[in-house]
Design a protein around this nucleic acid. Structure first.
Lengths: 275, 275
DNA sequence: CTAATAGTGTCTATTAGACAGTATGTT
DNA sequence: AACATACTGTCTAATAGACACTATTAG
């Protein structure tokens, strides 16, 4: 190996082809909540988790759905910037909650060549998206999410199509409950994106109890019942109203707005209290 | 753009140079705990967090300390496998707790070329390492770790050398307490590794309260006082013994072993209860 | 009036914090 | 005996769970 006298000299002679190189992408799990309206005018609408998928119009995985994503430009872009660029392209918004989720790197996750992907979770209130979505993009509502014997079954709907997949979770670290994921059934989603979807939803579920992450999916003004319904759909369980109100009391601020016209007592609207 | 009839045809004609490529590495923050023995034979030894650093003998950053790491072989290795390979090389052990921490990707973090690094946290009881360390590797004890006005000051020692650095934390996400890190002062550590060290320690600190992560750093048999001391050094605060014992009671199992010879009442040894 | 949800008061059960006290080894 | 830590009992404070009750609207 050649010897250099200083770092400058070393760098001037550095051969970038010395190590094999690869491509990187970011994939973004953009999550929001939707209302499933009821027929009965009195009943309140149920909440569902929604995620944005894009129909691929090119190979590989042509005609399958995938998460919005894009290749990293290694010369001038960080992963965060790349994720923001993709989000801007899909939603026309710049100020969206964004968090690095996990770097997915199965060797054959992309049939073209080795592509490592840093996945991000993004949260938005989808009613804030005033522009129309790109023509290949569509919101899917998660209508079923259940875990039985370490197998997770997920069903999603847009207005035309139902997607179903299942993932087997295998415990690989008892001390910290780390699981590895194996896709059991999946006919509609490209790459390893079912794993990204599951691990993103689990991330939100974990964080909802010890952070204020939920407010990134809420409109500016909301009732406590609505907020509770969002907690319930993310946690996958019913909560008791008095306890819930006690816990979030110091995170929200009462306004003088009311939500009326619902066939029952109107609710006071609150907003997120930024301390 | 050329049209293909099916995925197979597309893949056969795929040009891997279509997107710019880059290199990836894994860097490993290997964490353990040490005893700082007291002069007084009665006093119990204080615990310190220890991390493994390696002295670089090549450019760039020649003669600086860095985390053990290595380039990913994109043809046949996952990031996890790469991390395990590095750990095996440094510790001669294969069954070490390992967890992906974060993917660091500042554009100029490596002066050679664009190198994105997926950092891992690894935990071990360093007394289990029966072989000698590689000649460039050394355990550093963290002797100071304090945060004042969002600046974190860290001091580390091996037997010859003291390393000091400081990092400024800037809140970038109020809802989830996300911070960006800026290295303020650092003369001894290569790359962006000060950031990796801080974010790894914070990860452990977060997880110690809701997982059993701590037992990856403990010997097979330990007293509850020792265990408490490890919690205290990781959390950076004193705990009350009765409360601590209540909380960890169902995570540990009493053995019939005792720890004697300490100039005070001997302690019962416990082991981790895997349920 | 009725159906439906909004919102609160209060009792109980569980968990966390604090402190004082007893136990038991080494020198 | 003196010191130092190991370990436990118990009181109190805070938090969580449960349920019953009152309030208020559209139709």
């Amino acid at each position: 190996m050649k010897k250099y006298n200083n770092e400058k000299e070393f760098l001037e002679n550095y051969d970038v082809t010395k190590f094999d190189r690869l491509s990187m992408t970011t994939d973004i799990l953009l999550v929001s909540v939707s209302n499933k309206d009821s027929i009965n005018y009195r009943k309140t609408s149920k909440k569902m988790i929604s995620i944005l998928l894009v129909k691929r119009d090119e190979f590989p995985f042509k005609d399958k759905w995938c998460l919005p994503g894009g290749f990293l430009n290694p010369k001038k872009e960080t992963l965060d910037e790349c994720a923001k660029r993709v989000l801007k392209k899909e939603t026309n918004l710049s100020n969206i909650y964004l968090e690095q989720l996990y770097t997915f790197d199965d060797i054959d996750r992309d049939p073209r060549t080795r592509v490592v992907s840093s996945a991000y979770v993004a949260l938005v209130d989808k009613n804030k998206l005033i522009y129309e979505l790109n023509k290949n993009a569509s919101w899917f509502d998660i209508t079923e999410f259940k875990e039985i014997d370490n197998i997770v079954y997920i069903t999603m709907n847009n207005n035309n199509e139902t997607i179903h997949f299942s993932i087997k979770k295998t415990l690989i670290q008892k001390t910290t409950n780390q699981y590895s994921f194996l896709i059991l059934k999946n006919e509609s989603i490209a790459f390893d994106h079912p794993k990204v979807i599951l691990s993103g939803i689990e991330r939100i579920r974990n964080k909802i109890n010890y952070t204020d992450i939920v407010f990134n999916m809420m409109p500016k003004y909301f009732s406590l019942s609505e907020l509770q319904a969002v907690y319930e759909v993310i946690l996958g369980e019913k909560l008791l109203a008095p306890a819930f109100r006690r816990i979030i009391a110091n995170k929200v601020e009462k306004t003088d707005k009311m939500l009326t016209g619902k066939g029952h007592r109107p609710s006071v609207l609150f907003k997120y209290k930024e301390t």
